[in-house]
Design a protein around this nucleic acid. Structure first.
Length: 432
RNA sequence: GGAGGGAUGGCAGAGCGGACGAAUGCACCGGUCUUGAAAACCGACGUGGGGCAACUCACCGUGGGUUCAAAUCCCACUCCCUCCGCCA
């Protein structure tokens, strides 16, 4: 949630900032109006409440003094006021619920640095990288043997079995086998080891409570994209961001512990409602995938650095894997609703000839922690911490990029040597 | 799944219908003393909302209820501990 106090103080600025991402002034005004009404009703209810409390105190005093008649009299008066108070509180709560609903619907205020734009077409490409670029090499050219889609390579080598996955759980639930399965495991380990110098490794639950999903902004906004386990009031997590952001919910962190950096490998579950049909072949878009997440709680001053660190780690992994990629600065219209600034990393996959998003590195300001109530002790009082996160990296698409990029003319796949330690030295995938 | 016990401020822990936002100890912070520190002593010391302010409201695991009045009584739920059962 955005800061309501800020909205009251600087309504024009906030309205203008939100307009950059397509929020109409009317929507902001509706919240402001409801808020004013709510506060007036609340004051009325509170003053009645104060009177009831005062009378109740007098009842006690009178009875202790032995004046029962007077006690009863005051109790009766208090009872009457109590009825009024209940009615006033009910009215205040009704409007309060409206305020909360409107407040939850407002997305985060975009960073002034985020480029303007209405859709993903206006995202700004900041740079590209490919192997040998620093030495003057040009973007790689790919041979015919690399222009084969990963689902065909996977079938041919017996390392990806989409049909079996579909038989078990429906389409878009991939099943990897043999070296394909092993490759996934290797990638996770490779990444976790790379981040172990500065990020504490966490193994969180794969499900979360409704309350937890609220904190990150995934609910109520994206309910249709989540898998729900209704009987137990649980949701399958769509990203490791969910448990990591809520890990310290309701706590006051020691400022000396900030930035508090965490990393976690988790399964990620996404219904991808409305995505049916397009870009869904093979591993392009799946309901379940594994991802290593990088996360930090930090002070506002540390946020830039924290975001830059996650971005450079994600890039570092792509470079070590030798996969060409491009870096996008998301425009205001394409920003996730909780994010103030997001950089996307897209890897190039020669077989399907596309750029695939494999990491989204975002700064959320205090939008998430205002809901999760994670604070630190500041100069005076407490302040909300900022959250930053990004993938490092999402493996399904990396898996696709690796087998397509490193396919040899003879049909085998020769993986980069950095993975050798995690594959017991066997970096060549051959037909079983 | 069954039986019992518990959940209170940063921590420990009292309170069990009315003056309780809450004793006490520890920790933390400010001060006195000291060359400095420790000890001792003095003081301050939960969070959030509303109000220009005086001030006021909410919060004692969560949600309901009883009452003029609830940390305190009642109901439901969650979590933790002990024991029993089942189990990778």
């Amino acid at each position: 949630m955005i800061d309501l106090a800020l909205l009251r103080r600087e309504p024009e600025n906030v309205t203008a900032a939100l307009a950059r991402r397509g929020i109409s002034p009317d929507q902001v005004q509706a919240l402001l109006t409801a808020d004013i009404e709510h506060r007036a009703l609340m004051q009325e209810a509170e003053s009645l409440r104060a009177q009831v409390k005062d009378l109740s105190r007098q009842v006690g005093e009178a009875r202790r003094a032995g004046d029962t008649a007077r006690g009863d009299e005051i109790a009766e008066a208090s009872k009457q006021l109590g009825d009024q108070e209940r009615a006033a509180t009910a009215r205040a709560e009704e409007v309060g619920a409206t305020v909360r609903a409107l407040h939850l619907q407002l997305p985060n205020i975009p960073s002034p640095d985020a480029p303007d734009g209405l859709s993903e077409d206006e995202n700004v490409e900041l740079r590209q990288w490919w192997p040998g670029m620093d030495d003057g090499a040009s973007f790689p050219t790919y041979g015919e043997h690399q222009r084969v889609a990963h689902w065909d390579i996977g079938t041919e080598l017996g390392i990806l079995d989409l049909e079996s996955g579909a038989r078990l759980a429906g389409s878009m639930f991939p099943l990897y086998r043999g070296d394909g399965s092993r490759l996934l495991r290797a990638l996770t380990q490779f990444a976790l080891d790379a981040h172990a110098d500065a990020y504490e490794e966490i193994r969180p639950p794969s499900v979360a409570l409704t309350e937890t999903m609220m904190s990150t902004g995934h609910l109520p906004k994206s309910e249709d994209d989540m898998y729900a386990i209704e009987r137990d009031n649980l949701w399958l997590i769509p990203t490791g961001e969910v448990p990591l952001t809520s890990m310290n919910r309701g706590e006051i962190l020691n400022v000396d512990d900030l930035p508090l950096r965490l990393t976690a490998a988790t399964q990620c579950f996404r219904r991808e409602a409305g995505a049916a049909g397009r870009d869904t072949r093979g591993l392009l878009r799946v309901h379940e995938f594994e991802k290593v997440e990088l996360f930090a709680y930090c002070t506002p001053e540390q946020a830039d650095e924290a975001q830059a660190d996650i971005l450079s780690r994600a890039e570092g992994l792509l470079q070590q894997l030798g996969l060409p990629y491009r870096l996008l600065d998301l425009c205001t219209g394409d920003l996730g609703s909780a994010s103030a600034r997001t950089f996307d990393l897209e890897v190039y996959t020669p077989g399907v000839d596309r750029w695939l998003e494999v990491s989204s590195v975002s700064w959320f300001r205090d939008y998430q922690t205002r809901r999760a109530n994670v604070r630190y002790r500041a100069e005076s009082g407490t302040a909300l911490v900022h959250t930053v996160n990004g993938s490092g990296l999402a493996w399904a698409r990396i898996w696709a990029a690796l087998v397509e990029t490193y396919r040899q003319p003879d049909g085998t796949v020769k993986l980069p040597d950095v993975l050798a330690p995690y594959l017991a030295g066997r970096t060549t995938l051959t037909k079983r």
